[in-house]
Simulated assay, not measured.
Amino acid sequence: DGNAPAERQAFMVGDSGAALLLTHSDQPEVAGPRRVELDRLDLSTYTAAPLGLAVDAGSAAYIMYTSGSTGTPKGVQVPHRAIVRLVINNGFADFNHQDRVAFASNPAFDASTLEVWAPLLNGGAVVVIDQDQVLSRQGLREVLLD
């Protein structure tokens, strides 16, 4: 979360043992792992070949940090199976190839898991909505109609 205080960002990077930090060039430096600035990334140097990583349903898909409202934030590993359970044959929502889901939450918030993976794992599409549009009634209306 680029809007989080620098101390919180540094804590999460250090606590997680991250080896790589995906960020943007306008974000402040965080000591520790190698930094990859996504807005300056040259994808032409990469191949489409599989990475050959051993991943199964119990492998961590990502780490989500708690708010820390009762003390120190805690990292929670979210396994791939938890994402699949949330968005495929879940018994509460039918996601399919016709869906267009607005990605409007902060990626550091757990609601973003549903907004991203529900459409992608069911053949639909994610529509990224800029924060300025989300906060503007007219802007949000226009992007939703579009």
Rank of each mutant, 00 (worst) to 15 (best):
V84S: 06
G71T: 05
G2Q: 08
A18R: 02
A108L: 10
T47P: 14
H24G: 02
V126C: 06
S44K: 10
A125L: 09
G139K: 12
T45G: 01
M12P: 04
G2R: 14
L120N: 05
A18T: 00
A93E: 13
W117Y: 05
G123T: 04
A125Y: 14
Q9N: 12
L135Y: 04
L121I: 01
D56S: 10
A82P: 10
G71V: 11
P79T: 04
Q138V: 14
N89D: 14
A19W: 00
S67C: 13
Q131A: 07
L38R: 01
V13Q: 08
Y65D: 08
V134F: 15
A19R: 09
D39G: 04
F11C: 01
N122W: 01
R81A: 10
A60P: 13
L43D: 02
G14K: 14
D132Y: 09
G91L: 12
D146G: 05
N3P: 00
S25V: 13
L114C: 05
V84I: 15
V128R: 01
A82F: 07
G68T: 11
V78W: 15
P79I: 09
G91K: 13
A49I: 03
P119D: 03
L20F: 08
F109R: 11
V13R: 06
N96M: 04
G123Y: 00
I129K: 10
G75D: 04
A18Q: 03
V84R: 06
T47V: 11
V78G: 06
S16Q: 08
Y46I: 01
E115Y: 11
A6D: 08
W117F: 08
G52L: 06
G68Q: 09
G124W: 15
F11E: 02
R40L: 06
L144N: 02
L135W: 11
